[in-house]
C-alpha cells in the first residue's frame, strides 16, 4: 500500500468521494422517475409491443396461412390452421390463428418471417390481465388489435423490402407512418 493510498484509507477519502457523489445527486439532479400511470414515456418507433394481424385496405386479411410464422416462433406462441379459400384452389388463408401471448417474448421473428407482412407489432404494452387465459388470443382478437393499431392500411406491397416489415424504421429513407 503506498503512502498515498494509505492516507486515502485513513481519511476515508473514497468514502467521501462517494458521499459527495450521492449528495450532488441529491442537490443537482432531477429525478428521472416517471409517474407511470399518470405519465407515460414516449415509445421509440421500433418498439415491439403486442402482436397483431393486419389487413389490406380492402379489409381482406393479409395472412395467407403459410405457417412460416409458426415455424419461426421460438416460443411456440403461434398456431395456424390454414385452409383453402373455398372455390379458389390456389389461394389459402388462415382458417384459425391463435397466439398464446403468455409465452411470447416479443422477439419479432414471426414478423420477419411473414412473407406477406400479415403480422405487425403494435405499441400496446398495457396488457395486464387478471386471467391469463385472456392472453390466449384468436384470429378475431388479433385482427381487432391490428385494426386498432394500424388504422391506415397498406394497399400495395411496393414499399416492402424483401425481408423487412414495412414499418421497420431501420430504413430511414422510407416514409414513416404517422402515429
Amino acid at each position: 500500500m503506498t503512502f498515498k493510498a494509505w492516507i486515502k484509507t485513513i481519511t476515508f477519502y473514497e468514502l467521501a468521494v462517494g458521499m459527495k457523489a450521492t449528495m450532488s445527486h441529491l442537490l443537482h439532479y432531477k429525478p428521472i422517475t416517471m409517474q407511470y400511470p399518470h405519465e407515460k414515456r414516449i415509445l421509440p418507433d421500433n418498439y415491439r409491443g403486442m402482436l397483431s394481424l393486419l389487413r389490406y385496405d380492402d379489409g381482406t386479411e393479409k395472412c395467407v396461412g403459410c405457417d412460416l410464422c409458426e415455424a419461426a416462433c421460438p416460443s411456440r406462441v403461434i398456431r395456424v390452421v390454414s385452409a383453402e379459400v373455398p372455390g379458389e384452389p390456389t389461394k389459402r388463408y388462415a382458417k384459425e390463428y391463435y397466439m398464446d401471448m403468455t409465452r411470447c417474448l416479443f422477439c419479432g421473428l414471426c414478423v420477419d418471417a411473414c412473407p406477406v407482412d400479415a403480422l405487425g407489432m403494435t405499441r400496446e404494452y398495457e396488457w395486464s390481465v387478471y386471467d391469463k387465459r385472456q392472453l390466449h388470443l384468436n384470429k378475431e382478437q388479433l385482427l381487432a388489435i391490428g385494426d386498432r393499431s394500424f388504422p391506415v392500411r397498406e394497399k400495395q406491397l411496393e414499399l416492402q423490402h424483401p425481408n423487412v416489415a414495412f414499418f421497420n424504421v431501420a430504413f430511414k429513407h422510407l416514409p414513416q407512418k404517422p402515429d
Binding site: T22, M23, H25, L26, Y29, P31, I32, T33, Q35
Partner: peptide, 13 residues
C-alpha cells in the same frame, strides 16, 4: 425520500 433523491428518484409520491 432522501434515498430517492440521491438516486435520482422521487420516493413515495
Amino acid at each position: 425520500k432522501v434515498l430517492g433523491w440521491m438516486q435520482d428518484r422521487m420516493g413515495p409520491m
